[in-house]
C-alpha cells in the first residue's frame, strides 16, 4: 500500500536524520583512533622520559667517577716525588757494595776458612762464622757497663765486656759458678772467705760454658727474656739453644772477636 504524503515526509526526515547521525558517528569513529594514538604516544613519551632520567643519572655517576679518577691520577703521579729517589739508593748500594768487597777481600785473606765467633756489643749479637760465611746469628747479652763501688772497702769493679781478640781456652758442661766478691758487694752482703760454700752456685751459668780467658766467659742464663739487652757483669750470655749450638761447634782455640 502506498504511504500518505505526510508520512513520506516524516520518513524522509527520519532517514535524513539517520544519515546525518551516521556522519556524526563516522566522525566519532575517526576521533577514536586519534585518542588511542595520543594515549600510546603519551605512554611512549613517559617511558622515554624515564629512560632519559636513568641515563642522566648514569651520566652523572660517570662524571663523578671521572672526577675521582682525575684526582687519584694526580695523587699517584705526585707520589714518586714523595718517595726517595731510586738513583740515590742505587748509588749508595754500589758504594757500599764496593767498600764491603774491599773489606771482605782483606779480612777474608786473614780468616781463610777459619771458624770464629764475632760478638757485637752494641747490637748484642753473637755470630758464628766460617771465613766470610755466616753460620749462625744469635742474640746475646753483654756487660752492662757502669762501676760498682763497695762503700765499706772502697773497692771498685767495672762491668763491661772488653773488646778485642780472644780464644776459647776451655769448655765445660754444667759449670759451677764460684761467686766473686762483687756478687756479694752488689747485693750488700758480707763478703765471705774464699772457700766459703756460699760462693758455690750450681745452675746459674746454664748448661755449658766457654772460657775466653781471664774470667771472661760465654755462658747461659736463667733469664732469657733479658737477652738482647746489656745486663751482664762482663760475660757474654746466650740462650740455651744457641749456647748448645755454639758449645758444640766451637773448639779450643776458636777465635772470638768482640767489638
Amino acid at each position: 500500500m502506498s504511504l500518505p504524503a505526510d508520512k513520506k515526509r516524516v520518513l524522509f526526515r527520519f532517514y535524513l536524520s539517520l544519515f546525518l547521525l551516521g556522519l556524526l558517528v563516522v566522525q566519532l569513529f575517526q576521533i577514536h583512533p586519534l585518542w588511542t594514538a595520543i594515549r600510546t604516544h603519551q605512554q611512549t613519551w613517559e617511558d622515554k622520559a624515564l629512560q632519559l632520567s636513568f641515563l642522566a643519572h648514569k651520566l652523572k655517576d660517570q662524571s663523578n667517577f671521572s672526577r675521582e679518577h682525575t684526582e687519584q691520577m694526580a695523587f699517584l703521579q705526585n707520589l714518586p716525588n714523595l718517595l726517595p729517589e731510586q738513583a740515590k739508593f742505587i748509588k749508595t748500594h754500589n758504594i757500599l757494595q764496593e767498600e764491603v768487597e774491599t773489606l771482605r777481600s782483606r779480612v777474608g785473606k786473614r780468616m781463610a776458612n777459619q771458624l770464629y765467633i764475632l760478638v757485637d756489643t752494641k747490637a748484642s749479637k753473637l755470630y758464628l762464622k766460617q771465613g766470610l760465611k755466616l753460620i749462625r746469628e744469635n742474640i746475646c747479652s753483654v756487660g752492662r757497663g757502669g762501676i760498682l763501688v763497695d762503700k765499706q772497702t772502697g773497692r771498685k769493679w767495672e762491668f763491661s765486656t772488653p773488646k778485642g781478640l780472644f780464644q776459647v781456652t776451655w769448655k765445660t758442661e754444667d759449670p759451677l759458678w764460684i761467686k766473686p766478691d762483687w756478687a756479694f758487694a752488689e747485693t750488700k752482703q758480707l763478703i765471705p772467705p774464699p772457700d766459703d760454700p756460699s760462693r758455690l752456685v750450681q745452675g746459674e751459668l746454664g748448661k755449658y760454658l766457654l772460657s775466653m780467658g781471664n774470667g771472661y766467659l760465654i755462658h747461659g742464663t736463667k733469664n732469657e727474656a733479658s737477652l738482647g739487652q746489656p745486663v751482664s757483669h762482663g760475660c757474654i750470655r746466650l740462650g740455651a739453644e744457641d749456647l748448645d749450638f755454639i758449645y758444640h761447634a766451637a773448639n779450643l782455640k776458636t777465635r772470638v772477636y768482640v767489638y
Binding site: 767498600e99 764491603v100 773489606l103 779480612v107 764475632l118 757485637d120 755470630y127 772477636y257 767489638y259
Partner: peptide, 12 residues
C-alpha cells in the same frame, strides 16, 4: 756487614 768487617779488621 761493613761495620762488622771494619771492626774485625781494626782488631786485626
Amino acid at each position: 756487614e761493613k761495620r762488622q768487617l771494619e771492626k774485625q779488621w781494626d782488631i786485626l
